[in-house]
Simulated scan of single mutants.
Amino acid sequence: MNFKIIAFIFGCAILTAACKKDEINTPAMSNTSTKNIIKLDTAPAIPKAYIFIEPTSKYSMVSQYLRDSTIKSPLFPRPFLGFNGVDGGAIQYNFLNYVDMPHWYDGRLPAIIEAEIPQQSGGLDAYGNAKSQYIFTTVKIPKNTTIGTAWVSIFIPVKAMGNNTKRLRAVYTYEKLGNTLVTNGSVSGFTRNLDQVISGYTYTYKGTRIPKGTYRLYGTYPSSGLRAILTETKDFYMVGNALL
């Protein structure tokens, strides 16, 4: 009789241990499986435009850097020295030295501003302007970025423009004093037509400052449309406006 009782108790102990083992192991296996699932972000990167702001007051520094860093071309011996001392025929030869100029990145010149280039139309950008396909979204040049005149230029990868089937034709600019749009009563902004000679050149960038690729340069030179007057009180805004 005692033997049967002992066997019964021993059997119950084994069954209880097996149940506890299952209770412990099953959740652990489930947790391990969940942790091994990796969620991949497959959303394509939105291409960007790169906005350069060259103050007139920095001409000496900019021109000296470009003069010293450029190997003169036998086809055009005078290098591009920045938009305040530009020779229009030279810009195609050493503009990439301008892009790589360390002063954009060490605080001696305003930092390059990036703007997204939507690949589809729809919705509003961060400043309440409509997003349009292949047209860069609104950029803000804050007050006190620099004081006085400054040339504004836009560098855009061709793949962002329908794989080079589109080109930017115009931009729209306006100013705000705080949240108030600056107006003279009838005019509150300006459409600036871009120079098609400058945008006719392409540049293959292989450096590390911005993404590698083929780009076009957009600006109004020799017209002064994007020779902006920047102040210590008003913010300057610019957005893509029309395509060729």
Rank of each mutant, 00 (worst) to 15 (best):
N179P: 02
N179L: 06
T183V: 08
T183H: 13
G185E: 12
S186H: 08
S186M: 13
S186W: 09
S186F: 13
V187A: 13
V187G: 04
V187H: 02
S188K: 10
S188E: 14
F190P: 00
T191I: 13
N193W: 07
N193F: 11
N193H: 12
Q196C: 03
Q196E: 14
V197T: 14
V197Y: 13
I198S: 14
I198R: 06
S199F: 04
S199W: 04
S199C: 12
G200H: 08
Y201V: 02
T202I: 11
T202S: 15
Y203T: 03
Y203I: 04
Y203E: 12
Y203R: 05
T204R: 12
T204L: 11
Y205P: 06
G207L: 07
R209T: 09
R209W: 02
P211E: 10
P211Y: 05
P211V: 02
K212G: 02
K212H: 00
K212T: 13
K212R: 12
G213I: 03
R216Y: 10
L217C: 07
L217H: 04
Y218Q: 05
Y218H: 09
Y218W: 04
Y218N: 03
T220N: 08
Y221K: 06
Y221L: 12
Y221Q: 10
S223N: 15
S224Y: 14
S224R: 10
G225P: 01
G225I: 00
G225W: 07
L226P: 07
R227P: 00
R227F: 03
A228H: 12
A228K: 09
I229S: 14
T231M: 11
T231Q: 08
T233E: 14
T233C: 02
K234A: 09
D235Q: 04
D235M: 02
D235I: 00
D235K: 00
F236Q: 04
F236T: 02
Y237L: 03
V239P: 01
V239Q: 12
